[in-house]
Write a protein that binds this DNA or RNA. Structure first.
Length: 310
DNA sequence: CGAGTTTGACCCGCGC
DNA sequence: GCGCGGGTCAAACTCG
């Protein structure tokens, strides 16, 4: 937190004013004067501090209001899409186009999970090979900088790219990754930009890791990560100042189970609760977010105090 | 020099 | 049976 800098500078100013007084005033007068002055200074500093905290509190409240409004708007969009999707499912053909529409729906809400047979629409169109293998498919989307063309989704695991392909329904290439942390880990990951919004990366995880998450030390020991360091916490919130991307915390207790559950099986309240929990947990636990928030707030406070001085 | 990435070729399942 | 498209392989290449 940089906000301590504000207090330090204030203290230094106060001290310097006292020093000036001691140089010019006789001792007796100074003692009496300093007594009153100290009380005055304390009160004014306290009031200043109080006002500062009140302003900070007001700003944080405003920010919270904005976040809540954004969340509500997203929630409304999600409900609309959900309704639309249920209508589509009622009269939908089992062609790939319908499947793609369902995928877009999954993209919009940020994640989707499918357990085998839970999605009647997709289950029939899946290849048998996939149906057998894909007992645990989770989809995660991550908003990234549109200028950034790399198909890298930082989730804390070590991935080795083994292929890339341009698919028919999406102009952007799809990258194929295997978990390289454990030699026999069966997990695969496909990463592709959303066809509708190129700033959204859609990662599809296939399978379950048969090993514990890499520890921070192990991640940092890895040469590839030393060159391109990633945050070692799996699926944690990641907020980049340039891109302002938020990744849902999929390793939260209770979330994995929900990911495995089909979206259709989750009721609105359940989804809402999960989203709220994930948003709150992701924001509060991420040190980058708290640091960025602190920097922004302290920056504004400093700017305002400078303006007030003028 | 080793590990990771790129990319064209190949394999396999599905739909017609 | 054939063509299409997604997924995987593996040699060449890159980078630290």
């Amino acid at each position: 937190m940089d906000s301590t800098g504000v207090d330090t500078s204030l203290d230094l100013n106060l001290n310097s004013s006292h020093n000036k007084a001691t140089e010019t005033e006789p001792v007796a007068e100074f003692v009496a004067f300093q007594g009153k002055e100290l009380v005055k200074q304390d009160v004014s500093v306290s009031v200043e501090e109080f006002n500062r905290i009140r302003a900070e509190n007001r700003r944080l409240t405003d920010m919270l209001t904005i976040v809540c409004e954004s969340y509500n708007s997203l929630q409304n969009q999600f409900m609309e899409l959900k309704n639309k999707n249920s209508e589509n499912e009622a009269g939908a053909t089992k062609k790939r186009k319908a499947e793609a529409a369902h995928d877009d729906y999954a993209y919009m809400i940020g994640f989707s999970g499918r357990s085998e047979g839970s999605c009647s629409d997709e289950g029939s169109s899946q290849r048998p090979k996939e149906t057998i293998k894909a007992s645990n498919i989770a989809r995660v989307c991550v908003r990234t900088n549109p200028c950034d063309s790399s198909l890298i989704v930082r989730d804390g695991y070590q991935w080795r790219k083994y292929g890339q392909k341009v698919t028919r329904d999406n102009p952007s290439p799809r990258a194929y990754f295997r978990c390289s942390y454990a030699p026999r880990c069966p997990v695969k990951k496909k990463v592709q930009r959303s066809a509708e919004d190129s700033s959204i990366l859609v990662a599809t995880y296939d399978g379950e890791h048969n090993h514990p998450c890499p520890s921070p030390a192990e991640i940092s020991m890895s040469p590839s990560h030393a060159a391109n360091p990633i945050r070692p916490v799996p699926f944690t919130a990641s907020i980049e100042p340039s891109a302002t991307s938020v990744t849902l915390d999929l390793m939260q207790p209770g979330f994995i189970g929900d990911v495995k559950k089909s979206v259709g099986e989750m009721d609105a309240l359940e989804i809402q609760q999960i989203l709220v929990q994930q948003m709150a947990a992701s924001l509060t636990r991420d040190p980058n977010f708290t640091a960025a928030l602190a920097a922004a707030i302290s920056g504004r406070v400093l700017e305002q105090s400078r303006v007030e001085k003028w």
